[in-house]
Design a protein around this nucleic acid. Structure first.
Lengths: 217, 217
DNA sequence: CATTCCGAAATGTGATCACAAACCGAGCGC
DNA sequence: GCGCTCGGTTTGTGATCACATTTCGGAATG
């Protein structure tokens, strides 16, 4: 079908992996509203593959909480209850300060500069009212820091939490209608520059909980 | 046999779900040594199904970290590096005290009694040198407490950590050759009876880290 | 005796098909 | 007008097949 030169770092992408990555990104970035229905045949044709790879990708994403299967096997993006949102937020509040703290020692100036530029892109996304770009830059801001923690398992767990929150994040964003950048990003950057572990943990924690705590579906 | 209320309890067991549950239990309880090779056809025939449900179960378990796929797609149980074991242990040390603390308010006397009887079964498993029974009762001890936390997402994350540690736990057990029950289980029970949150968190944390911290592959 | 090479066996991948269950809307009865 | 039923259509599930790739043991070679 479509031959594509691999410009990314992944050398060979099996069909189910392409589907997995594509769907995962759509879910994590909030391109799909909560409760959106998907079908194996629809996914397959939209990615140019048969049902088999689509099924494997869905099974994988369901295991990660990115998708929900009804009792009869129908596929939807998750619709989270308020309790579930609270719980996922508290998991973020548990994991992210720990990851930030672990990254603190290894956070060189180049990283902080890069986070600063990501944060500017984040502010632009807010200004242009682009929810997907806002979510993407926000996650990139956090992930670029946590990558330095050298804790792949913990980061992996956190990403599944982000995945579960993806569709809801989009819904929350449109409800919130931000006009100004999240203030805690600046605090995070300042704590990083100062090398202040306690301040960093606190800034990350409040940044994580602030967005999710009191605006719920 | 004890009922095992996991995060998803479907009354109808489709073929791939039976395979998933079966393999998951084998991995989590340490019935498979690290690096054990599996094949789709082998799994299929051993569960009396074709390759298709076996593939879905493997994909699901791989997403949870219970199995590892080589670059060419071969299926093995994970062989963890020392750093990975350390990291998973620290994740347990992060999640389990939180779950215990959340369960503390709801831990009635009936629960504590049940945990005590599970702990006795755990001691018997040590006495009879039964690694699988030891791992199972140990996990049951913790899970029966954490279920009271009413935090399904957090418990789900923790179970994927247990899954990843399953094969290694077995290897560690045979290396350790315990002859006496883990002392911290008593401390956990005492803290529960006293309603002492700080003591409970500490007891759980040390129980979790003690077994994994200093005996590595 | 160790190393390399080759081919048969094994293995994962993706496509296709048959089938039962679920879903949904039109039509009917009340 | 409203609820229920019934039919066609959609959808997930599992089996089977063809095929490319990997794996691995043994033979050939030095």
């Amino acid at each position: 079908m479509l031959a594509r030169p691999a410009l990314s770092d992944a050398p060979v992408q099996s069909a189910h992996d392409r589907v997995y990555r594509g769907l995962r990104q759509q879910v994590m970035l909030g391109e799909l509203a909560p409760g959106t229905a998907l079908t194996l045949r629809g996914i397959g044709t939209s990615f140019g593959v048969s049902m088999t790879p689509a099924r494997e990708a869905v099974r994988r994403l369901t295991a990660e909480g990115a998708l929900t299967l009804s009792a009869s096997g129908r596929i939807t993006t998750p619709e989270l209850s308020n309790e579930r949102i609270e719980e996922l937020a508290s998991i973020r509040a548990l994991l992210e300060p720990e990851l930030a703290s672990r990254a603190l020692r290894r956070a060189h100036l180049a990283l902080i500069d890069r986070m600063e530029s990501i944060n500017e892109a984040n502010a632009r996304a807010i200004h242009t009212q682009d929810p997907v770009a806002y979510i993407r830059t926000n996650l990139e801001f956090h992930r670029s820091l946590y990558l330095r923690a050298q804790s792949p398992a913990m980061l992996g767990l956190l990403e599944t939490v982000w995945l579960q929150l993806g569709p809801t994040m989009r819904a929350l964003y449109t409800r919130l209608r931000r006009t100004t950048a999240p203030p805690h990003h600046r605090l995070i950057l300042e704590a990083l520059r100062a090398g202040d572990d306690a301040a960093l943990r606190l800034a990350v924690r409040t940044d994580v909980t602030q967005g999710l705590r009191h605006l719920q579906v």
